[in-house]
Amino acid sequence: NQESVVAAQLIPINTALTLVMMTTRVVSPTGIPAEDIPRLISMQVNQVVPMGTTLMPDMVKGYA
């Protein structure tokens, strides 16, 4: 089963992602794949992401 990127903390809107903000977990439905974490660093979220929420492609500016 593929791991997806999950918020390790509350991420406010327009925050640039850092490694410490993200963790990985096997979730359903699947979100952004864990191997894309290096690509996500410094990208901004376009909404508030509560802790434990799976990051979906449409939540990250410039990802999709």
Rank of each mutant, 00 (worst) to 15 (best):
V45M: 05
L19V: 10
A64I: 13
T24N: 07
T54S: 06
N14G: 07
S28V: 14
M21H: 13
Q9G: 06
L55H: 01
T24I: 11
Q44D: 05
M56G: 05
P33I: 12
S42R: 08
V49W: 02
V5F: 02
V5T: 05
T54L: 07
R39K: 10
V6G: 01
T24C: 04
V6M: 09
P29H: 06
A64M: 13
Y63Q: 07
E3P: 09
V26T: 09
R39P: 02
N1W: 09
L10D: 13
A16H: 08
V26K: 11
P57K: 13
G62I: 04
Q47R: 12
V20W: 14
N14Q: 07
E3R: 14
P29M: 09
V49K: 00
R39Y: 06
V48Q: 14
L17V: 03
M43S: 04
I11K: 02
S28Q: 14
S42Q: 13
M22F: 09
T18R: 06
S4P: 01
V49H: 01
L40K: 00
S28R: 05
N14M: 12
V20Q: 06
M43L: 07
A34E: 04
T18V: 04
P57F: 14
D36Y: 15
A7L: 02
T53F: 07
G62C: 04
T24A: 13
I37H: 03
T24L: 10
G62F: 07
V26D: 06
G52L: 05
M51C: 03
I41K: 06
S4I: 02
M59R: 02
N1C: 04
M22P: 00
I37R: 13
M22E: 01
I37L: 08
I11Y: 01
E35N: 15
T54P: 05
P33T: 10
P33C: 05
Q47L: 06
E3H: 14
P29K: 15
M59L: 05
V5K: 00
M56C: 04
M22Q: 01
A8F: 04
P38M: 12
V20G: 09
M21R: 03
T15G: 07
I41V: 15
V6H: 02
P38K: 06
M56L: 06
P57D: 06
V45L: 14
L19N: 09
N14K: 12
N46L: 06
V45Y: 00
A34L: 05
V49G: 00
T18P: 00
Q9Y: 06
Q47P: 02
V48Y: 13
V48K: 09
T54R: 03
Y63K: 02
L19D: 08
D58W: 14
V48I: 13
V48G: 06
M59Q: 04
Q44C: 04
T18E: 10
A64G: 13
T18A: 10
L10A: 09
I13R: 12
N46Q: 14
S4M: 03
K61N: 10
Q47I: 09
V5E: 01
V27D: 05
P50S: 09
M59W: 15
N14S: 11
A7N: 01
A34N: 06
D36S: 15
T53W: 12
A64Q: 09
V6I: 12
N1T: 13
A34H: 06
A7G: 03
G52K: 04
L55Q: 01
V60I: 13
A34S: 08
V60D: 01
Q2P: 10
L40W: 02
A8Y: 05
N46W: 04
P50W: 07
P50L: 08
P38F: 12
I32K: 02
V45K: 00
T23R: 13
T23W: 12
G52M: 07
V48D: 09
P33F: 07
T54C: 03
A16C: 04
T30E: 11
A34W: 05
M21W: 04
G62T: 05
V27E: 05
N46M: 10
E35R: 13
P12S: 09
T18C: 03
S4E: 00
A34M: 06
P38Q: 12
R39L: 06
T23L: 10
V27G: 12
M43R: 12
A7S: 15
V20T: 06
T24E: 07
P33M: 11
A7F: 02
Q44W: 06
T30G: 11
L19E: 13
D36T: 12
N1R: 06
K61C: 03
Q44K: 12
S4L: 01
M51A: 15
A8D: 09
I13E: 11
V26R: 10
S4G: 04
G52I: 02
L10K: 08
V60Q: 00
P29S: 09
E3Q: 10
P33N: 07
D58E: 15
V5M: 02
M22T: 03
R39A: 12
N1Q: 14
T15P: 00
V26A: 14
I13C: 03
I41F: 04
V5L: 05
V20K: 08
I13P: 05
Q44R: 15
M22Y: 01
D36G: 09
I37Y: 04
M56N: 07
P50G: 13
I11L: 09
P57L: 04
Q44Y: 15
I13W: 07
I13Y: 07
V5C: 03
G62N: 15
Q2T: 13
Y63N: 10
T53G: 10
M22R: 00
V26H: 06
D58K: 11
M51G: 07
V6T: 10
V49P: 00
T53H: 10
G31M: 03
N14D: 13
V49N: 00
S42P: 02
A7C: 03
G62S: 11
P57Y: 10
R25I: 05
P50F: 09
I41Q: 11
A7H: 01
P50E: 10
I13T: 12
I32P: 01
V27I: 11
P38S: 09
L40P: 01
M43K: 14
R25D: 06
E3V: 14
S4R: 02
A8I: 05
P29R: 06
N14P: 01
R39H: 11
I41H: 05
V60L: 13
M59E: 01
Q2K: 15
V27A: 11
G62K: 15
L17D: 00
D58M: 13
A64S: 14
S28H: 07
A8E: 05
M51V: 12
Y63E: 05
M56W: 05
I13A: 08
A8G: 10
M43P: 00
A16P: 08
S28L: 08
Q47M: 11
A34C: 03
G31F: 02
Y63S: 06
I13F: 11
I32N: 01
M56D: 05
D58T: 14
R25W: 07
I11P: 00
P12Y: 06
Q9P: 00
L19M: 13
V20S: 13
D36E: 12
N1G: 10
P50K: 14
V6Q: 04
P57S: 08
